[in-house]
Design a protein around this nucleic acid. Structure first.
Lengths: 202, 202
DNA sequence: ATAACATATATCAGCTTGATATATGTTGAA
DNA sequence: TTCAACATATATCAAGCTGATATATGTTAT
């Protein structure tokens, strides 16, 4: 989804400033499956205003910079619904965690352990935050989103906790016995390089 | 990770052309957690060549355009390792599926059912492809990536299958009894708009 | 005190995507 | 048979987006 549609979606839930829209992606309702930066939000709001999909009210504030509060118009609401009806584009998931983990054998063991521990903490914190919300209070669509997302985090945590020790033990034994015979580094690299690139990894 | 590092990573597993590197992201080893387009791969390879991180060999082919095969140099290998040691950036997940599902109440029910069925098919196909690979044959790091990824897909599938019917029934009852009293559309919208934007959704 | 963080908007270099162009071969369906 | 769809192969580019930076001020914790 383009940022303009994302802004309409946030504004559907109530009027907001650019700064508040950013928060919806950073820590709010959409934070687990959409994102947008200030650099795209502010221009998007400008264009949505010009096109009449949102209305802007300048709010003078004491001791704060002026706030521009945007509100969805009927036209904006219609446009949002139309966008929702279009065939969804495929998910996009990019993860340095998976990428680095993939090459675990090439890295110092403490580095890999740190990576896993940080990931476990991340899952725990995310689950903690998500379970503070009572699913029963959410509208139907939001509740399914919430439940599916929470399931993913919970099962990922369980998987990592169940496999962490075995994984580390295995890596350690590979570090101690670098390879079958000679200490020639090339051998290891050549073996790794022969692995089929066209098989699935995660 | 920038596309230059991603190219180094693919080339670490064996020499390849730009086209073949793209395949590693589209359907190959990195397809579940990284992506890159031709528009970024070809310029990246050019720059990596200039910097001496890869070497290029022009391969004349019968009945096919020339192929430029790139190979990692020692310098490129070192650069890859250094990049892997840097603190990983947070995951980025963007999903139209979640985004549309979030607004399920606003859409025609057949549309929502189609969305769920397509998602279930997607999970099934992905799991099918991933289980064709024998995890025991993978190096340690790749095996953990593979296992964690597969777990996510399998649990997502299970969750959707277990909750689909209840979810649809609930949406249907909302469509049949749009709200407590009057058929005034505004009422529904206002209710929805009062929902707290700053709570978690997935 | 003072550093870190929060509110609030805005700009911009640089990177990336998705579409398009070019040229050719293969495969499967009508 | 023909013809569309798909695969191999490289390359370019407008449009969009990120991440950093600038500006101005208030609050909170150390």
């Amino acid at each position: 989804m383009d940022v303009r549609t994302l802004c309409l979606a946030v504004l559907y839930q109530g009027e907001a400033s650019g700064y508040e829209i950013k928060k919806a992606f950073k820590e709010g309702a959409f934070s687990h499956f959409q994102d947008a930066s200030f650099g795209s939000i502010y221009p998007a709001l400008g264009r949505l205003s010009t096109e009449g999909l949102v209305e802007c009210t300048q709010m003078a504030q004491e001791k704060r910079p002026d706030k521009k509060v945007y509100k969805l118009t009927q036209s904006g609401e219609d446009t949002l619904i139309t966008s929702l009806l279009a065939p969804p584009t495929p998910d996009r998931f990019t993860s340095d965690f998976f990428f680095v983990l993939y090459f675990a054998e090439l890295l110092p063991l403490p580095q890999v352990i740190k990576l896993l521990d940080q990931r476990i903490s991340f899952y725990k914190e995310t689950i903690e935050r998500m379970t503070q919300c009572d699913p029963a209070s959410l509208p139907t669509g939001r509740r399914l989103c919430h439940g599916l997302g929470l399931t993913v985090y919970q099962n990922s945590l369980t998987y990592l906790e169940e496999n962490k020790e075995r994984f580390i033990t295995e890596l350690r034994s590979q570090h101690e016995t670098p390879r079958t015979s000679s200490p020639d580094t090339k051998t290891k690299d050549i073996n790794l390089k022969q692995i089929d690139t066209n098989r699935h990894a995660s």
